[in-house]
Design a protein around this nucleic acid. Sequence first.
DNA 1: GTTGAAATTAGTACGAA
DNA 2: TTCGTACTAATTTCAAC
Lengths: 184, 184
Amino acid sequence: MKILEVLRENGRISVAALAERVGISRANAYTRFEALRADGAIKRFTAEIDHVRAGLGITALVFVTVRQQMWKQFRAELARMPEVEYCAITTGQHDAMIQVRMADVAAVHRLVTERMANIPAVKATETVFILDEVLRRPYVLPTDRDAGRTARRPAAPEPAEVPLGKMRFVGAAEGRAALRKEGG
Amino acid sequence: MKILEVLRENGRISVAALAERVGISRANAYTRFEALRADGAIKRFTAEIDHVRAGLGITALVFVTVRQQMWKQFRAELARMPEVEYCAITTGQHDAMIQVRMADVAAVHRLVTERMANIPAVKATETVFILDEVLRRPYVLPTDRDAGRTARRPAAPEPAEVPLGKMRFVGAAEGRAALRKEGG
DNA sequence: GTTGAAATTAGTACGAA
DNA sequence: TTCGTACTAATTTCAAC
């Protein structure tokens, strides 16, 4: 975990420097580094690029409703859209969320109305623009849980008190109101 | 752009190998590499970590409605939540979208109902679970636009045909219907 | 899991095209 | 701006412990 913590902040650090920061020997660092890569815990190393400086100043989220039994086609179409940076299948009102980077607002409009709308698998879309990216952490690690808290718990083995079947995937405010009623 | 293309796929490549792949001299590669870093085009290098293998198998999106004039406090609270991987301010129904990685569903529930709900700046939340991350590209580049298309356009200087003030930030299906009516 | 030396590679400087 | 090259510093590998 310590190795991962260092590497997500500085992916180009030398293994020797990594060893020193983690507090192990160089040879050990090489062994563990290679093991993490082979194991797949580290998927790849990448450069974070300033998309604004690269000429893609507009970021948008497109929430997509996918026609049932056309998922395979939807995924195939996604693979052919290089402007898509991220796509996740979600629960809730929509089926998928897509994040795109474009040069300007008009390009987003064109993408959604011309390209996305012509995909048969796409039933409907809802577009939202990103005004500001407040934070992007390289990747969250389990050890982050205790960081930033004033009082750290001794990692109690908290059981899943709320059964999954009882959860409501809705707004928290609404959920709290309902719980209050139920609880009395 | 070529350098960025290589670097986002392999952030740990040596500058010598980078020079060869891009087709420039070693010395030139060092110069440009350093310039890209100094300029801020490359923000940092990072390791992509498999969060499932790291013990954080659940990913969720929390859409947050923020109380007006409490943005500063909201951002301050965010900084103290290490489980948040990404946060963006958006247009549309909600004010912000937060992506979190947690060990299990119960942990997400706890985060939203116990921690988030106790932040005065948070008026309401809506949680959605990510079932599958279809794709995550390191960072999209302008050169990606033409890739993956069967017919590539000669990069015409397309003007912004649709004025921003005329755009409707709503569902595309709805938007198309409206345009049909307007257009006749 | 550690240390230390050999082999290799990376980073720097500078003149020329 | 870019290239080639020579030089110095650092990294990686590999061995014994």
